[in-house]
Design a protein around this nucleic acid. Structure first.
Length: 262
DNA sequence: AAGATTTGACCATT
DNA sequence: AATGGTCAAATCTT
């Protein structure tokens, strides 16, 4: 129509952000058909209409992080939608090389809390086939491998991507966000260097862990390198709930919930 | 000017 | 029917 653009006031749904969003959903976690990469992703096969594919057939990996934009890959935002069950909108990103390398990797970023260090739930879909060199991600995330590969094991990665080729790929999105949001409340990134030299990162959590929950976080302190599910398998907690808090020093905060997909 | 982002609308799935 | 996800055009920034 003649209306170039109707800037509609985006009235956010102030639903009081009740913490009752998908609590203990009986939805299955998702069962990947075959083995693949980290996601156990299967080839896209055929995409008649492009995009609109069955959400059920898409492998997804849910992660929690404070820096959803710093995962070592370049993403291009292609959409935003407000979810009914969430007080914050959901951001849709796709690999910047999607057209260049047909990288179907995509991710959904959704803010869960409005805490000082807001926690974002990132849902990765498909794996990167762009063959790009991921940059080190100074962030702490909790990965949940698809069931079937190793059962209900989780994978905690602290500052993953040890490669660090230094491709010099600056995150344009980050700059963009800073200008647009300009929250001025965000403190500089937390450089979490899990090195054996310093042992004051993962411990002294003010919050009490589950009685029987042997949080790998403690073990992580001992294992500066990447923490593998194998370690966690040593003592699988009865409750699939991981809650890692960070002390006032502002360092770490991991939250993993089994109800990733709803 | 090009690329990236934003917003609205359409469509697919549930 | 409702929600979520994606596409497309327009807009903005670099």
């Amino acid at each position: 129509m003649a209306s170039p653009r109707l800037k509609r006031e985006q009235s956010f749904d102030f639903e009081e952000a009740s913490a009752q969003e998908a609590v203990g959903s009986a939805s299955a976690s998702y069962s990947p058909p075959g083995g693949g990469g980290v996601f156990g992703i299967s080839p896209p096969e055929s995409s008649p209409r492009d995009g609109r594919k069955r959400r059920k057939d898409r492998p997804s990996l849910v992660k929690h992080t404070f820096t959803p934009h710093f995962d070592g890959h370049l993403w291009r935002k292609y959409g935003q939608k407000n979810i009914k069950d969430s007080a914050f909108p959901r951001l849709y990103y796709r690999c910047s090389y999607r057209e260049d390398r047909q990288c179907l990797a995509s991710k959904l970023v959704q803010q869960e809390n409005d805490d000082d260090p807001p926690l974002y739930r990132v849902t990765y879909t498909y794996e990167h086939t762009c063959n790009t060199t991921p940059v080190p991600t100074p962030d702490v995330v909790a990965e949940q491998p698809p069931p079937g590969a190793a059962g209900d094991a989780y994978l905690l990665r602290f500052g993953s991507s040890a490669g660090g080729g230094g491709g010099g790929a600056h995150q344009q999105q980050t700059e963009r966000e800073r200008q647009q949001q300009n929250t001025a409340r965000r403190r500089p990134f937390m450089m979490l260097s899990f090195d054996s030299s310093s042992s004051h990162q993962l411990h002294e959590q003010p919050h009490a862990f589950p009685p029987d929950g042997q949080l790998p976080a403690t073990a992580a302190a001992s294992s500066p390198s990447s923490f593998t599910a194998a370690e966690a398998l040593a003592a699988p907690p009865p409750a699939p709930l991981l809650t890692t808090t960070m002390n006032d020093g502002g360092d770490l905060f991991s939250t993993w919930t089994r109800s990733g997909i709803e």
